[in-house]
């Protein structure tokens, strides 16, 4: 399932990150790598960006960036 489509409160394991270049590296640097467990913890008042919990820290990313991340949801 695409990260953009996940509901608040939903959890899953990152299956793939399909982008390279600076955005692809940046996403990985922040710990969003295949195998990482994430939970969507909320969205901004205008539904973008999305807020997720990973390894006990909170990350935010725009929906357009979340598009590149596929998650195997529970």
């Amino acid at each position: 399932m695409n990260l953009r489509k996940m509901q608040t409160g939903q959890s899953g394991t990152i299956a793939s990150v399909k982008i390279g270049g600076s955005l692809g590296l940046r996403i990985r640097e922040m710990g969003l790598v295949p195998g990482a467990e994430i939970t969507v913890t909320g969205r901004a008042p205008l539904y973008d960006p999305v807020k997720i919990c990973i390894n006990g820290q909170t990350l935010t990313l725009r929906n357009s960036e979340a598009d590149h991340i596929d998650v195997a949801t529970k």
Binding site: K51, Q57, L59, T60, L61
Partner: peptide
């Protein structure tokens, strides 16, 4: 140019 990636940490 492309926007700089927003991916950032919300510090505790």
């Amino acid at each position: 140019g492309e926007s700089t990636p927003f991916v950032m940490e919300l510090p505790p």
